[in-house]
Design a protein around this nucleic acid. Structure first.
Lengths: 335, 335
DNA sequence: CTGTTAGCGCCTTCAC
DNA sequence: GTGAAGGCGCTAACAG
């Protein structure tokens, strides 16, 4: 591999001149510039990004850690981050945490070790507080994505989870539903806690008694299966608060021999990749995941530019997509 | 950030000793080792991976380029690669090519610039031959994943596409199907060409006339929609050769008002994330995607260890998962 | 068993 | 407008 020294020798100039034409960092006589450029072509010289990064302590790259880039919502965010980063000439380094605190820790370390200029992080459910505490010493700025924590001095981008759930519940109550099952998931995930909060907001709006509702918090679905099995106590609508939770919910419905929307209405957050191929088509609160990714890069770039401005939190609006699974002809209306 | 010099000073030893305890690269008196270690703790010293990589010209990291880590088949491969890499202490750098030749080129460059020790590459459909040609100069070894090209001097991991399709067709012909539509996709993708080849193998096995078959090669589905619309010429079974092609096929079926498997049987390659939630459940030839990822890392690690052994190609068996969409009670039997 | 020293390839003051 | 030289943090001879 050719180095700057080779180029300099061939061009008959000093390496410092080569460096300067490479980086456009000071004026050089057009003639010498030409010589340098042709020497570059001739040798097939390419900058050594490592040496460069070492000298400048900047890599023009950012890191992204998500729990699983294969999940639809995250996949979209990844696309958003990728494109926005590419547009700014930033290289993206991607890592999965597999929703595991240890792997998350390792992924963050790895990227920081690789000297990314900044980090975008969708924290794992069990992400310890110590993670972020440890990060604050590092000079690389962090942007929190999707899973936002109050009172943290970081830039953050998320969705209007609470409000979206409230709207969804409003829709369902207006259709006559009074008895819900909410598959709420791991409430250490702030996103899920926000959605659950929104659920109660929605009940309050419609003056529905919270006591009648089934909230499934852990991953064991026994309570749900049980409730579905008993016609007397059966909810008329099931709400899943994320895609994996929807999978569990639909599986439970299936096992109970119930069909949607005939026996019970169903709605989910985040949703599946090809909503129109599902049958029934599922009513979905969809994250503006792509835009969230773009926004995260924007915040990060801004912070890179001005490290001391005060942290900003962005909440993006989500779309309520109404489909068959919460259609009119549900059990709630017929009751 | 503390450096080796700091540690050496505090421990009262030379930096070379520090380096050697860090890397276990030569014997050091237990007593001095202790001193060094406590100095490390004290200063919170962490190795500078960049400086280290620069010196050793090895980064203990590998790169992976796929067209879209969000697509189910690739997502699985990514997981396989991640875990296998982690197990060997290799850091993974991931990039998407978005099935675009330029972006692929850029992604490869970026990773190589970052000095990955090796690269795993699932080439984009339009990937130019020049890409690989240019790579051969680089010293970093390449492993081709999923999309395999004959007569290329690289290690490769793929699936038994041709044979799987042959089996699938065997299954369908044994159920009475004689008239197929194959959504074959972009035949520049070798995987897809192999699958199409297998289709004709299967026809030959069952002595079915290839002339009666509809092969949809481009992304325009007009021919398919047209064929489905005409009861006289309508195929009794549709085979989609990848997940995105299945989406197109199902959409076309839907638009034609036909249902599966009552009106027409349907089978797909690669498939969807939650096959049991689809209705109808789709018969699927599933890639051992995770294992392919693991195998790719294995090949890469082997080559890193012995750069001059001759290239190997691995073909993994695929699973034919029979589900409702090709069930007995199809139009073909009734005919 | 330990220390000294020469770079890896590049950027950047400082001098001319 | 250009060059010389120091050093980023680390590893690997080479000495002792």
């Amino acid at each position: 591999m050719a180095t700057m020294v080779d180029v300099a020798r061939i061009a008959g100039v000093s390496i410092s001149t080569v460096s300067h034409v490479l980086n456009g960092t000071r004026n050089v006589e057009p003639a010498t510039r030409k010589k340098v450029q042709s020497a570059i072509e001739q040798t097939g010289y390419r900058q050594d990004t490592l040496a460069r990064a070492m000298r400048r302590s900047r890599t023009e790259s950012i890191g992204l850690v998500v729990s699983d880039a294969g999940e639809p919502a995250f996949a979209e965010m990844v696309h958003g981050v990728e494109n926005a980063a590419a547009e700014r000439g930033l290289t993206l380094l991607l890592a999965n945490s597999a929703e595991d605190a240890d792997r998350e820790q390792r992924a963050v370390r790895t990227l920081l070790d690789r000297r990314v200029d900044g980090l975008i992080l969708a924290r794992a459910a069990a992400s310890p507080d110590s993670l972020l505490a440890g990060l604050r010493d590092d000079k690389a700025p962090i942007v929190l994505l999707d899973r936002l924590y109050r009172d943290l001095p970081f830039d953050q981008v998320g969705g209007e989870n609470r409000d979206s759930m409230r709207q969804l519940v409003g829709h369902l109550t207006s259709r006559g539903h009074r008895r819900f099952a909410v598959i709420a998931g791991d409430l250490r995930v702030p996103t899920l806690q926000e959605r659950l909060d929104g659920f109660f907001d929605g009940l309050r709006d419609a003056e529905v008694d919270p006591v009648d509702q089934l909230i499934v918090k852990d991953s064991s679905l026994d309570a749900l299966t049980h409730a579905l099995g008993d016609p007397a106590s059966r909810p008329t609508a099931v709400i899943a608060c994320s895609t994996p939770l929807a999978v569990q919910g639909l599986t439970a419905l299936e096992a109970s021999g119930l069909s949607t929307p005939a026996d019970v209405a169903f709605a989910t957050f985040d949703g599946f990749a090809y909503p129109d191929l599902f049958s029934p088509r599922l009513t979905t609160v969809r994250q503006p995941a792509y835009d969230m990714g773009v926004a995260a890069v924007g915040l990060l770039a801004d912070r890179l530019a001005s490290p001391d401005s005060s942290p900003r939190t962005l909440r993006l609006r989500q779309a309520l997509e109404l489909r068959e699974s919460t259609e009119l002809h549900s059990v709630a209306e017929r009751a």
